[in-house]
Nucleic acid binder design. Structure first.
Length: 404
DNA sequence: AATCCACAGGAAGTGCTGGGCG
DNA sequence: CGCCCAGCACTTCCTGTGGATT
């Protein structure tokens, strides 16, 4: 094997013509100028928000649909246009975007809103939450203005912190003298509405927009549009696009997943020094994306969650097809704890951890009733077990157990 | 039809961490 | 510095329940 010097590698990279024209087009936060197959949703949101241009307060909006159905993109797109138009008309309107998945506490959501509307530098922790709320009100009330707050992935916030902040936010207009606030709530969990206070729900869903998943043809159109912008001409095979669209269509019509596949496939093409993106690269990309995702997720899990996952993996390898229940997991988990010298957590906690692992998509754990033999969760690993094992083998805390 | 298993999952609280404030 | 605050992992105590078996 010929060994290349670092300089050689750099040189070859620089000399080679990239297959990408503009890779940014394939990143998550890119909002294109056209959103194919979302015209209706855009129109509806635009109608609702248009009130703002006449100085009114638009109704609160609730948008729901599964991941990658364009909710965030539509919201960002319309808001951007609205802000532009507002500026031309000399109106004072702004918006704050908060993704609750990464700020899943009341406090952090408020801090983020403050940050977005120009009140920077608040600490991530340490202050009383109502103080931040007051700060926010003062900031909004400085002048006659409309602030539209977008709460993306709202279900995460409600699940982990309840709807206190939501309640406060829906009532915020009562406390404002000059400014006004409209809310846009976005969620992909349809059942989550049940957990909401009815007052919050009715206030938040004055208007609602439903996003249905894309089908394969629509995904194809989206990919086609991005391809033209992102890749050099003639690089991407049409059949590769069809395949990526088909794969993503199976996974609840997730456009983000489709675009990920395309981007990673493009990176693979570059790495392998080729100049054509084919179906093969899409398949390789699929593997890579899945493996990476699993490995990163498992590696960054708290240790107790790892131990319980280890127990589940053990069970699904040994007890050939036997039912894996919460009680089973508990036994194996406690054995593992003794062998590795960890203090086991209680059943109640195990139950929460199993739910966590399910939320992460590593396992499925539907509640089933075995009649006389009780009610439990039926657990199954939903990702390639080898990817999980790979992480544990590398981790010296567990490797003792895995080596023979 | 009644029973009862093996848990599910809500509520409230503890102990610890990491930060701010006067 | 001591005090306060929120978050997190976890515990304790608890009530609820689908359906095979009695």
């Amino acid at each position: 094997m010929i060994s290349l010097s670092v300089d050689d590698i750099f040189d070859s990279l620089l000399m080679k013509k990239s297959v990408f024209k503009n890779k940014r087009v394939l990143s998550h936060d890119y909002v294109p100028n056209e959103l194919p197959h979302r015209e209706k949703e855009i129109q509806k949101l635009a109608y609702i928000l248009a009130t703002a241009l006449k100085g009114g307060k638009p109704s609160n909006v609730f948008m729901y649909g599964k991941t990658g159905t364009g909710k965030t993109a539509v919201a960002r797109y319309v808001l951007k246009k609205l802000a532009e138009r507002g500026e031309k008309l000399g109106l004072s309107l702004s918006y704050a975007y908060v993704n609750c998945r990464y700020r899943k506490t009341n406090y952090r959501v408020l801090v983020k809103i403050c940050d977005e509307i120009g009140c920077r530098g608040l600490p991530e922790t340490g202050l009383p939450a109502d103080m931040i709320f007051d700060k926010m009100i003062k900031q909004i009330d400085r002048k006659d203005q409309l602030v539209i707050i977008i709460l993306d992935e709202l279900d995460w916030l409600v699940k982990s912190s309840g709807d206190d902040v939501l309640y406060q936010l829906t009532r915020i207009n009562n406390e404002l003298e000059r400014g006004q606030v409209s809310l846009i709530g976005i969620t992909n969990d349809l059942k989550f509405k049940d957990n909401l206070d009815s007052r919050v729900l009715s206030s938040l869903s004055e208007e609602s927009i439903i996003f249905s998943p894309y089908n394969a043809q629509q995904l194809y159109d989206i990919l086609k549009q991005r391809t033209v912008m992102a890749f050099e001409d003639g690089v991407v095979d049409d059949s590769a696009l069809r395949l990526a669209a088909a794969i993503a269509a199976q996974e609840h019509g997730d456009a983000r997943r489709a675009i990920d596949l395309l981007r990673v496939a493009g990176e693979i093409v570059e790495r392998q020094g080729e100049n054509k993106l084919t179906e093969r690269h899409i398949l390789e990309a699929k593997d890579e994306v899945e493996k990476d995702l699993v490995e990163v997720t498992v590696r960054d899990l708290p240790v107790q969650e790892q131990l319980i996952l280890l127990a589940i993996v053990n069970l699904s390898l040994s007890s050939n097809g036997d039912k894996i229940t919460t009680g089973n997991v508990k036994k194996v988990y406690e054995d593992i704890c003794i062998k590795l010298g960890y203090k086991p957590v209680t059943l109640r906690r195990i139950n929460d951890i199993i739910s966590d692992l399910e939320m992460l998509g590593i396992i499925s754990a539907p509640v089933v009733s075995l009649g006389r033999y009780g009610r439990t969760k039926l657990i199954r690993v939903e990702v390639p077990i080898n990817s999980i094992l790979k992480v544990f083998e590398k981790d010296e805390r567990f490797s003792v157990l895995l080596k023979k």
